[in-house]
């Protein structure tokens, strides 16, 4: 990148900007395909072949294999498309939040409730 401006740092946050969009295109394209039930089934039937079809790089393939949201974001994944990937396994936003923050789902939920007090 030829930008000389310092990027704004927001702790624990990766804004999905041009850098991420370039890095994550193949991964996000695969996850976008999961809008279709037939594609979700095809992924479950043969994950390797499905990932190969979308040309995932090694980092993206590993992150998909690990079902690891922070790794998926580091590999250029966008939250909205990744949510469709999580949907294949019936994971909701509290599952995903708990995984990313390293707490149990109950602890994550309690934290949300506490934010309202």
């Amino acid at each position: 990148m030829n930008t000389t401006r310092q990027k704004r740092e927001i702790p624990g946050t990766v804004p999905f900007d041009g850098t991420q969009a370039r890095k994550g295109y193949a991964l996000n394209k695969m996850c976008f395909s999961f809008n279709s039930a037939a594609n979700r089934e095809e992924f479950l039937r043969d994950e390797d072949a499905y990932c190969a079809q979308y040309g995932l790089n090694e980092e993206q393939r590993e992150a998909i294999r690990n079902r690891n949201v922070l790794q998926l974001i580091a590999a250029g994944g966008n939250a909205y498309y990744l949510a469709k990937f999580a949907g294949i396994f019936g994971l909701d936003m509290q599952d995903i939040g708990a995984q990313q923050t390293g707490v149990s789902k109950d602890e994550f939920r309690a934290k949300l409730v506490k934010a309202g007090e």
């Binding site: 702790p11 624990g12 946050t13 934010a115």
Partner: peptide, 13 residues
């Protein structure tokens, strides 16, 4: 609300 990253679950009442 924030869905993604280590700051997931962030809320600012």
């Amino acid at each position: 609300h924030q869905l993604d990253g280590q700051r997931a679950g962030f809320i600012n009442k």
